[in-house]
Simulated assay, not measured.
Amino acid sequence: MSLILQGAVLRGRRIATGAVTVTDGRVADDGPPGAVRVLPEGWIVAAGFVDLQVNGYGGAQVGEDPDEIARVAEGLPRAGVTAFCPTLISRSDAGYGRAARALRDAPVSPAAARMLAPHLEGPFLTPTRAGAHDPTMLRRAVPEDVDRMLDVFRPAVLTLAPELPGGLDAVRRARRRCVVAVGHTEADAAQGREAIAAGARLLTHAMNAMRGIESRAPSALVAFLADNRAHVSLIGDGVHVAPEVAAVIARATGRRLVLVSDAVAAAGAPPGRYRLGRLPVDSDGERVLAGAVLAGSASAIDRGPATLVAAGIDVASALAAATEAPRRLLGLPAGLATDGPADLVVLDADLVPRLTLVGGVVAHADHDLPFDVPPTGRPV
């Protein structure tokens, strides 16, 4: 049997009336007779969100406990996420060793978001732009350290500051093994251009932990906004970047914009005290603070498209920044591709995820869906 979702469908950066057929966990052109589910007016079926920067979710964090990492993966489909890069902030060598073992040993559930290779946010960052990173855990980009991190983690993304001693060499060493990103940096535009020329292809959380846009002192942000070879990631929670500014960045980057959450354990959880690494952080449900410093987000990635749309960006472009753009950057197959895995999300008219499938398995379904689907954990 097949499940056929009929209604508005996002493919790439275009929304059109159509249908998505799920058969044996994959997207099919057609298949055996199946149950047709007609989406309500204004609802959209799209490829599942891919989040390149997840520190935690639902009270659990990505760190040194494999069961906590599994809880993050199991919770993310509630936010429409079907794949994510577990993200490690800077820590000691011993902490990195424990985290590597935890990532390796995290139990895998078919009703969880797919865990991609990690995003190493650090430790090769500029201390004056440490943000919530412990400055004592930051270090220069010594070749032996860079190679060891690449060998141990085989990351999907490595964020570093190119102006550090050895920074540009680190970009060159890593560019064939992962996406090299620039972040937590004091780099100016010239240094940003040098990083792009050396192989950097992503700017990590634009406008945060970096210099902004000044009339006569352009920064690395300007270099990445201007270069069509590079993608730019943006935290779309409306807190890290004002929605009006986020819309300006979206218009400047177009298909190069990648929405990320930078979610921490407080995301998808009640207000309260949580941890980011070993750092205690406090969430009021909207923002997460370590003292007076923003320390990740209390929102998952599903907040991003709605934030952009409210600021004037069209729905297809806003959703593509959380679906198509991260897949292209990581070299993943396009979403909803024929014979590809049925990793998809059904969004209501307010862009709230109502149904998430991972490999055709129901990973999240609202109890008040206007149509029936199998229980969570079961294939459609």
Rank of each mutant, 00 (worst) to 15 (best):
L5E: 09
Q6G: 06
R14N: 07
A19Q: 15
V20N: 14
V38A: 14
P40A: 13
G42W: 04
I44E: 11
I44R: 15
A46H: 08
A47D: 14
G48L: 11
G48R: 05
V50W: 01
N55D: 11
G56A: 08
Y57V: 02
G59M: 02
P66W: 10
P66F: 06
C85Y: 09
S90G: 02
S92M: 13
P107K: 07
P107T: 12
A111M: 05
R114G: 01
L116G: 05
H119F: 02
G122T: 04
F124Y: 05
D134V: 01
P135V: 04
M137V: 13
R139Q: 12
R140I: 01
A141I: 10
V142G: 09
P143D: 09
D151W: 07
R154K: 14
P162C: 14
L164E: 07
G167P: 11
D169V: 12
R176W: 04
R177H: 12
C178L: 05
T185L: 09
I196E: 02
H205D: 09
A209W: 03
G212K: 12
G212Q: 13
P218L: 05
S219Y: 03
A220E: 08
A226Y: 09
R229G: 05
V232H: 03
G236V: 06
V241A: 08
T253C: 15
L259M: 11
L259E: 03
V260M: 07
D262I: 07
Y274T: 08
L276D: 06
L276I: 14
R278I: 11
G285K: 11
E286G: 13
A298C: 12
A300E: 00
D302Q: 00
L308N: 02
A310F: 04
A310Y: 03
G312D: 05
V315W: 07
A316W: 00
P326N: 11
P326W: 07
T338C: 15
P341D: 09
A342F: 04
D343C: 01
L344V: 07
L344F: 07
L347G: 08
L351M: 08
L355N: 13
G359F: 02
V373K: 00
R378M: 00
P379F: 00
